[in-house]
């Protein structure tokens, strides 16, 4: 018996449960009540409000990713420069919250934003009463949820960095800042890229955070899709929106893969 046969149960499983079900999205986008038509698909594409929500979600995801990178890079950098035993312990502290149920953590934030912050600052009404306030609140919780996912790949890359390169840079006359910008930062690009991929795409589709923060008065692209499938089921709209999302994810994955030189093995394209 050849060893490669061991992969066959998995291949069958993947075709049945991952690849084939993707076809349903295309089926429901172009098939309304048993007849094939592109009418609903085009109607949904022409609806400006969906595109506005997508734009808002993409901007929100950009903001989340940028803030996570700005906050997370120093964390990973400091940890990678610590003594190994100490860094190991502290880094575990940073990743423990990832294991706590994230819906529960989001719920806790909604309580903090609705009750604790107004109490603390003597505000007469809650932060989420205005639309700007809701945006800030959703952004805050998204950053909170995704920060560990940014720190983890950055820490992995930075801690594997060859320290003799830093010494070499210093020997050649570079000061601390030059060493950081010309040696450390370029070498950590694989970590930055995988951090961004781990935050950006999930942030576009995040629908739990906007649903729970601000009493559900703020909606992102994920909420619109959720609405089209679960709350007011209209599969043709939901499927079309999912196709747009998939195209978007595909494009951003392609862009990210272009920057990622470190990857080995198969990539999606």
């Amino acid at each position: 018996m050849k060893r490669k046969y061991f992969a066959y149960p998995y291949i069958v499983w993947m075709i049945l449960f991952i690849a084939a079900p993707m076809l349903f999205i295309f089926y429901y986008a172009f098939n309304v009540n048993g007849t094939w038509t592109a009418e609903k698909f085009l109607d949904t594409l022409k609806n400006v409000s969906y595109w506005k929500t997508l734009l808002r979600s993409v901007l929100m995801a950009f903001g989340t990713t940028a803030i996570c990178l700005l906050l997370g890079y120093p964390i990973a950098y400091i940890l990678s420069n610590m003594k190994k035993s100490v860094a190991g312990f502290i880094s575990v502290l940073f990743f423990v919250p990832m294991w706590m149920n994230f819906v529960l953590r989001t719920y806790a934030w909604s309580a903090i934003i609705e009750y604790a912050i107004p109490d603390l600052f003597n505000m007469t009404r809650s932060l989420t009463a205005t639309s700007t306030g809701r945006t800030v609140a959703v952004l805050l919780v998204l950053v909170y949820d995704f920060l560990p996912f940014m720190v983890l790949p950055l820490y992995n890359t930075l801690s594997k960095l060859d320290k003799s390169l830093l010494e070499a840079s210093r020997d050649l006359g570079a000061n601390g800042r030059t060493t950081f910008f010309r040696v450390v930062l370029p070498l950590s690009i694989p970590g930055i890229v995988s951090g961004i991929t781990m935050v950006f795409v999930p942030a576009i589709t995040a629908f739990t955070v906007p649903a729970l923060i601000g009493n559900g008065n703020y909606s992102l692209y994920g909420n619109v899709i959720d609405d089209a499938f679960k709350i007011n089921p209209e599969y043709s709209i939901g499927s079309t929106l999912s196709i747009i999302l998939l195209v978007f994810v595909l494009i951003s994955t392609l862009i990210m893969n272009h920057f990622d030189t470190d990857k080995e093995g198969g990539s999606i394209l």
């Binding site: 084939a20 999205i25 599969y235």
Partner: peptide, 12 residues
């Protein structure tokens, strides 16, 4: 996105 994974399973 896990959203899409969830939807495809639901339809399947």
């Amino acid at each position: 996105p896990d959203l899409v994974t969830g939807i495809t399973f639901m339809m399947l």
